[in-house]
Design a binder for these strands. Structure first.
Length: 151
DNA sequence: GCCAACGTTGGC
DNA sequence: GCCAACGTTGGC
């Protein structure tokens, strides 16, 4: 079972939104980067995903969600009124994918970015590589355990 | 609000 | 196919 990390601005979608969701799942859509999309496509039902809060007051890993539905064409790419609309995409040849995720748990505390940067064994984590902008990335089992152990 | 780093676009 | 210009990301 693979493990992942996704970035999100909590003002858009936070771990609390997952916890409080009336519907059980939240679609992870609007990803418009090819490398991130490819990782989305690799996600399988049941995979665990760290939720990372970015561009906010408390930056860091806040909780865990689970992949409930593996990749399907992101409907927002076809909606002209969506900020994620992509006129070059067609239902026959969709460019972008989404997955559905559900709340699993909040971590006992948010693990701040500067701590993640200082933990031994996380040097290879894409999140903390210089200038990184990936919003969806794989996390190795070992990296996952190191982060969890510091929660 | 600044700005470094990056991905994408489009002219050639 | 190159690469300059541009827009975006995201920490600070």
């Amino acid at each position: 079972m693979a493990k992942w990390l996704v970035k999100t601005e909590p003002s858009e979608c936070s771990i609390d939104d997952f916890e409080n969701a009336q519907v059980q799942t939240i679609p992870w859509d609007g990803v418009r980067n090819y490398q991130a999309r490819n990782f989305l496509q690799e996600m399988a039902e049941g995979d665990d995903v760290f939720v990372y809060h970015s561009s906010c007051k408390h930056i860091g890993v806040a909780g865990i969600v689970r992949v409930v539905t593996s990749a399907y064409p992101d409907p927002t790419q076809f909606r002209a009124d969506s900020p994620y609309y992509d006129p070059k995409s067609t239902p026959e040849k969709p460019r972008w994918q989404a997955v559905d995720m559900a709340f699993e748990k909040k971590l006992p505390r948010l693990i701040p970015l500067d701590e993640i940067k200082s933990l031994p064994g996380l040097e290879g984590l894409a999140l903390i590589r210089r200038g990184n902008r990936l919003s969806v990335m794989p996390v190795t089992e070992q990296q996952w355990q190191i982060i969890l152990a510091n929660a």
